[in-house]
Design a binder for these strands. Structure first.
Lengths: 341, 341
DNA sequence: ACAATAAATGTTATCGGTTACATTGTTTAT
DNA sequence: ATAAACAATGTAACCGATAACATTTATTGT
């Protein structure tokens, strides 16, 4: 691999001139420029970017902490980040953290070892210590999708509470009075927000919130299936299930159908995220669409602002949701179906 | 950010001693070691890994070219890679290439600019020039999942032809004589291999291969839906559809059900990949399971072998497939159903 | 006790660029 | 014609760690 000195020698100039030819060609006379360019081509010279990054102290790398890349929603977010990063000359270091705090702290440490300039965190967990903040108290981080309650960095989120309320209203308008909810992990703020929105809407409609109709899941298909199983084996009437994401909704539908229930005639099911499969399931899933790619794009752009020192901690971008009504939700049956037949 | 010199000064030793304390502590006397360790803690010193990488010429970065991270199968492969890489101290630079050759060449160039040591390519495309090979004619690359016909690097693949033949045999054994196929993009070797396996099995069974029953798709849900639409509007009888991946199978099922067909009573549908959704679809999908995580793991380990100079070009790992029979395939109807009702 | 050997530590060149500053060559203004 | 201003190019310090080699200190054998 040739270096800048070899190029300089071949062109009969100094290394500074070679560097200038590449960085600020206007400072180099056309004659010299031509000589240098020829030498570069002849040697097939490529600047060692590791050296540049080391010298400049800027890596142009961004660590992205993803709970699970195997999640269809995150995959879209990642695509959005990728594009925004590429446009600004940044590379992404994607890390599949499996939601493990220690792993996240480990990778966030790449900031300290000068391997990356900043972090995008897709989970409500602060992988830094407080003394990692800069003069203005800003961490080199952006928190997106699932955000911290008291973030020390810009955030990008959805108004999950409002969105969940909107979905609940939709169910209430269809006449549902006994709505079960399949929740995400209790540790996730998304779960809490969506649950609060659910409660808000119930209260608004004068319906009572019933703790026994709240079921735990972990955002996977299997957990949706299992939760539906528990719903089927309890005694309360239920005519609709609000699932906190599409995967769990699809898992639940699978179980309900296995029990011979018709959707939405016997029971309505709704999701959250509008993943690609939602449109093609049987029946197509009523859900909340999130602008996933835009999450990624916004997060990266905010982070670059932070890195350039032109961002305030207070920046909180809230992206719009959209209620997508398909066929998995319908009018409540006149008689609540007996689930435990 | 403190550097090794500040630590040396505070501890009252030379920089070499500090470096040794971290790299080969057995060469440093316990007394000195203690002094240095104390200074390191006091200054909260973290070695600048960018400097280390620059100095050593080894980045411990691996570029991963992924056609689409939004693909559930690739997401699993990525998880496998992540784990294997972490175990060996490597970081992944994931790139969502959207199958664009220019983008892939661009990112493969990171090898030349010393930003990464090697590349894992998940598509049958060589992003390098031939003169990028090392002395033994090896590229710093491993090709996994969809592999090149004449690779200049180790490969990890499935025997797609055999697997497709196995699936076809399964359909034939159920009595199907008119089997349509929804293919991937013609540019993909996977498509060709699976098609050849399909043909092999038809021939073996004494059935004739029929060009009009081959339909194009691009591995997305929507393309499966669209292809099924075309199948419904043509005149040949069809009692089973072999889809080259699960997404297309699920898209096709969606369309077939919309036409009032029952699966598998009226028509059987099979997939390929065994993504998580396959188990929870209605009906659950008959498919070929691939050890996705193992693909990733093997690819990374092979690449690390290449980088260490202990791999031969000829290494071709072939991982096992598994035929998973669920309910989307069943006995052929006595009378072929008239699709265009 | 003293050379021979081993262990511990220090000095410094090096990796490949960038850039402040120095130097040389060329115009322009008077 | 000559000083001043400017353009073009060169020289060398620097970023932070590593490691070859040099030097100092401790240990061993006789």
């Amino acid at each position: 691999m040739s270096n800048i000195r070899e190029v300089a020698d071949l062109a009969g100039v100094s290394v500074a001139t070679v560097s200038r030819t590449l960085q600020q060609p206007e400072l180099v006379s056309p004659k010299t420029r031509a000589k240098v360019t020829r030498a570069i081509e002849q040697l097939n010279y490529k600047p060692n970017l590791m050296a540049v990054k080391f010298r400049s102290g800027k890596t142009h790398n961004i660590v992205v902490l993803v709970p699970t890349v195997a999640n269809v929603f995150f995959a879209r977010v990642i695509r959005g980040m990728q594009e925004a990063a590429a446009a600004e000359g940044y590379s992404l270091l994607l890390v599949n953290t499996m939601g493990d705090n220690a792993t996240e702290q480990n990778y966030a440490r790449m900031i300290h070892t000068s391997q990356a300039d900043g972090v995008v965190q897709l989970r409500a967990f602060n992988p830094f210590n407080d003394n990692d903040a800069d003069e203005q108290g800003l961490l080199p981080m952006v928190n997106a999708c699932e955000i911290l309650d008291t973030p020390q960095c810009p955030t990008v989120s959805l108004d999950n509470r409002l969105a969940a309320a909107a979905m609940t209203e939709h169910l209430v308008e269809l006449g549902h009075q006994h709505i079960a909810m399949i929740k995400g992990p209790a540790s996730s703020p998304l779960t809490r927000e969506r649950m609060l929105g659910f409660k808000d809407a119930l209260q608004e409609a004068g319906l009572k919130y019933c703790e026994e109709l709240m079921f735990d899941g972990d955002f996977t298909l299997q957990s949706g299936y299992d939760a539906a199983d528990r719903i089927l084996s309890q005694s309360q009437p239920v005519s609709a299930i609000f699932c906190e994401n599409d995967e769990m909704a699809l898992g639940a539908i699978s179980r309900l159908k296995a029990a011979g229930l018709r959707i939405p005639e016997d029971i309505s099911v709704s999701g959250f995220d509008n993943i690609a499969f939602a449109k093609f399931s049987d029946p197509p899933l009523t859900t909340i669409a999130q602008p996933a790619e835009e999450f990624g794009e916004t997060a990266i752009n905010l982070l670059i602002d932070v890195l350039k020192g032109k961002a305030k901690r207070a920046v909180k971008v809230i992206l719009p949701y959209q209620l997508i009504i398909r066929n998995s939700t319908g009018p409540a049956p006149a008689q609540p179906v007996n689930l435990t037949r």
